[in-house]
Simulated assay, not measured.
Amino acid sequence: MTAKRTLAVVSAGLSQPSSTRLLADRLRDATVARLEQDGYEARTTSIELRDLAQDITNNLLTGFPSPRLSEAIEAMTSADGVIAVTPIFSSSYSGLFKSFFDVVEPTALTGVPVVLGATGGSARHSLALEYAVRPLFAYLRAVTVPTAVFAASEDWGSGDAQVSALPPRIDRAAGELSALVAASDRSGRLDDPFALDRPFSELLGGLGA
């Protein structure tokens, strides 16, 4: 049987179409291709935060997630790997991106491989991935791959000189993520906090006889 792996793709773009979603999709496609080359069947779930903005706000105000938001969080925290992409506003991640991860349990992404991506109008914002986005996932105890991918407006241009740098960065990050995801296999194997380590009859010590 072909081994299966799952990827959750979190995109915080606000417009439609969105360059943030486009970068997330490029990272997803490259990671899936690398996993398939290594003999894995990859299943992906796209989490578009724009569609969950009201649910996220309500969760912050009430402390309770909606069923739709719960489903998105479960898809991400149970995945073998995560692709997380945010637009850069005012030299940092977007408020929507941060708010989503604010409603995720701090330990829910412990040990989960994550590739980080961001988009912005100028390449000078690329360092935000290192001083803002990466520390956020360090706090969440995720395992971020070494290569983060930033796409500026010129990276989506039509000239060969403009677009030559982005595909290699995507491929390198995808290779790093796929290697960690291949070694993970968290899907369907998450520990059950209520699971018994021995049959219930043994725990009773014969009281049920």
Rank of each mutant, 00 (worst) to 15 (best):
R169M: 12
G117K: 01
R68M: 08
A132P: 00
P17W: 03
D102W: 07
V103S: 01
A108C: 03
L49Q: 08
V181K: 10
D191Y: 04
G63K: 01
R68W: 03
F64H: 13
E48I: 11
V9G: 09
P113R: 08
V145A: 06
S91A: 13
M1G: 15
R172I: 11
F64T: 15
G206W: 00
L61N: 12
S178C: 00
S178P: 00
F97T: 02
L35S: 00
W156R: 04
V143Y: 14
V112L: 13
G159I: 05
W156G: 04
I73C: 03
L129V: 10
D25A: 15
S126R: 13
A195L: 03
D197I: 01
P199D: 14
F97A: 00
L61R: 13
F64Q: 14
R169D: 07
V104M: 06
L180A: 00
V82L: 14
V181E: 11
P67E: 05
S46N: 11
F200V: 13
S184L: 07
T6R: 13
F137W: 06
L23R: 05
S184F: 01
R198G: 05
R21L: 13
L203Q: 07
A179R: 14
M76T: 04
A148W: 02
E74T: 15
G95Q: 11
G175W: 08
A173C: 04
E74K: 14
V112R: 08
A84S: 07
R68E: 12
R169I: 02
E130V: 01
G13I: 06
G39P: 02
L69F: 02
G63R: 06
E41H: 12
E74F: 10
D102V: 04
S46K: 07
Y40G: 04
V10Y: 00
A183L: 13
